[in-house]
Amino acid sequence: MTNVSSTISSGAPNVTPPPAARKRLPLQWLGVMPFFIFALMFLILPTAYLVIGAFQNNQGEFTFENIAALSQPTIVSAYWISIRISLASSVIGALAGFAIALAIVRGGLPKWARPATMTFSGVASNFAGVPLAFAFLATLGRLGLVTVGLRAIGIDIYSLGFTILSFWGLTLTYLFFQIPLMVVIITPAIDGLKKEWGEAAATLGATTSQYWRMVAIPVIWPSFLGTVVLLFANAFGAIATAYALTGSSLNIVPILLYAQIRGDVLHNPHLGYALAFGMIMITGLANVLYIWFRTRSERWLK
């Protein structure tokens, strides 16, 4: 390119190079600029602002005090409950969702079972937030249909220690969107298991369980784990359901952060930043773990 233009322009030294050659790079970037500016302004910078704030004191000096202050018992227990609920609802949700997906793909159920389940899962995985809390209050609340029904046959779940406002109550509620989300994501992965793999394994003398252990599960594992991480983050950041269900009586991180944003209940704005930073760290860490595991276990993937 340079050679050609210099040869041409050698006769007329004042001719400027063609504008296209100079403008090509900036023009190309112009096409994606709006997206990057948007992402920077409304996704990355606001998050970075909080992260930086987490390491500053009120005078704007660098400090670890806010991070250290996260160790106070209320905050630690909030993180702990949040992690447990997210972990329980994501692992149970993933296992249950996997079982359902397996049943509709490989279980020999009637033809309608699969499209019906997929459609319903699409709806239920998006049915979260406040209305979900209402639904479970109407089911397992003190006057809920199931509670009342069980009491009628002599089982009072509330006197047995259950409450919808508890760890298991919230986990059970979260499963209503976690399981369908798993079904929606993992069904295509189960479809990806070729019938011939099972047949090849059988002719080579493998039992069904050997086939699952050595081929099917390793093949599905990355998708499975990736979905668990997604479900974990999904539950960890969820607030509306828990808030509508329990008000502020359940001490989980998003509710604590919500209260902090509304009214500085921790009496230290920078501690709020640290709280948010901790949330990003945990969901981020889950993802890093997943990516690390994936690259390690998946050399066979393209």
Binding site: A200, A201, A202, T203, G205, M214, V215, W300, L301
Partner: peptide, 22 residues
């Protein structure tokens, strides 16, 4: 007899190699 007890070897049209194994 089940396929895994017959001692037959089979090759499929679509190769059917296990993708996760070398």
């Amino acid at each position: 007899l089940k396929p895994n007890q017959r001692k037959v070897g089979m090759v499929f049209q679509a190769y059917a190699l296990f993708p996760n194994l070398t």
